[in-house]
Design a protein around this nucleic acid. Structure first.
Length: 279
DNA sequence: CAATCGTCCTGCGGGC
DNA sequence: TGCCCGCAGGACGATT
């Protein structure tokens, strides 16, 4: 599932390929992905709009277009963009079934195609004016990799509740989903069900540092592709080789050798070391 | 009022 | 072998 490192990797890839390109047309077989207007209207509106910039806010992709329009895309769980889909035979991603669920195609003025593959059809695509975009994003918390996201700021935005749930709450701070929440808490040696109010200063500091560290490290490796995420060339991120907790249930903890446990916490599959991460 | 549940969706894996 | 059930989960709305 695309979290901050995967969305940022996507943004970087897109910027290198489609900046300053103009949309010629768009196709879909899944009209419900287009949330704020009918697909017919979207198709009319997107034509001839130029991509002036591409950025990320939390897990959202934002294409800044000409005429003061914005294309907002949320990949949710299984969405990913593919540039110039159907790579040459034998090319990276060609044999990967995850790249075959093409739900939308954006035709560009260089005769290339930007496609959206999304197995579960949960992605969101919206064409918005500035005020509408701001309104949709207004509840999002701060960016954890920004310089001004200090330890003081981190402590200030936290609310009471199970720490795992808090880490994944986009209104507190953005970018962390199920994979990185488990990795952050493993590194910080904190039990995912521990209440924020019961965390010591030392534990808070470890979670804060682990958040920055894990997200940066995952970004460096192009994200995690355990199941569905692919980069815009259809290839995989390599951070999955670095995972210490996520989907390692039944295997030995790299720190203490205890068998990693899996438990449903806040409706999410959660992986942790019962020895290193005590409640 | 906060916590939990249901919804969207479909491929895949486990069990029989 | 083949079928069916249930699981995976980001975000949001509904419910308790």
């Amino acid at each position: 599932m695309p979290e901050l490192p995967e969305v940022q990797t996507t943004v970087s890839g897109l910027k290198s390929k489609v900046l300053n390109r103009t949309f010629v047309d768009v196709w879909t077989d899944t009209e419900k992905l287009f949330k704020n207007m009918s697909f017919g209207d979207f198709r009319k509106e997107i034509k001839n709009k130029k991509i002036k910039d591409i950025r990320r806010r939390g897990k959202n992709l934002i294409f800044e277009l000409s005429e003061e329009y914005f294309l907002l895309v949320h990949l949710k769980m299984t969405g990913h963009f593919l540039y110039d889909e159907c790579p040459p035979a034998g090319g990276q991603g060609q044999e990967d079934s995850m790249n075959r669920f093409i739900r939308a195609r954006f035709f560009l003025d260089n005769d290339k195609v930007l496609a959206l593959s999304d197995l579960r059809k949960f992605a969101k695509i919206e064409l918005l004016k500035k005020e509408e975009l701001d309104k949709e994003l207004e509840l999002l918390g701060p960016e954890p990799l920004e310089k001004d996201f200090t330890f003081e700021k981190f402590k200030k935005v936290l609310k009471k509740g199970k720490i795992k749930q808090i880490l994944m709450n986009q209104n507190i701070f953005v970018g962390v989903g199920n994979i990185y929440a488990d990795e952050i808490l493993w590194q910080a040696e904190v039990h995912p069900e521990k209440n924020v109010l019961d965390l010591s200063e030392k534990e808070l500091k470890k979670i804060y540092l682990a958040t920055k560290d894990i997200l940066l490290e995952a970004l460096k490796f192009g994200g995690t592709s355990t199941s569905d995420y692919r980069n815009i060339e259809g290839g995989r991120g390599t951070f999955e080789k670095k995972l210490k907790a996520y989907q390692r249930q039944g295997q030995k903890c790299f720190r203490c050798g205890t068998i990693i446990k899996r438990k449903k916490i806040a409706q999410r599959g959660t992986h942790f070391c019962p020895t290193c991460q005590k409640l």
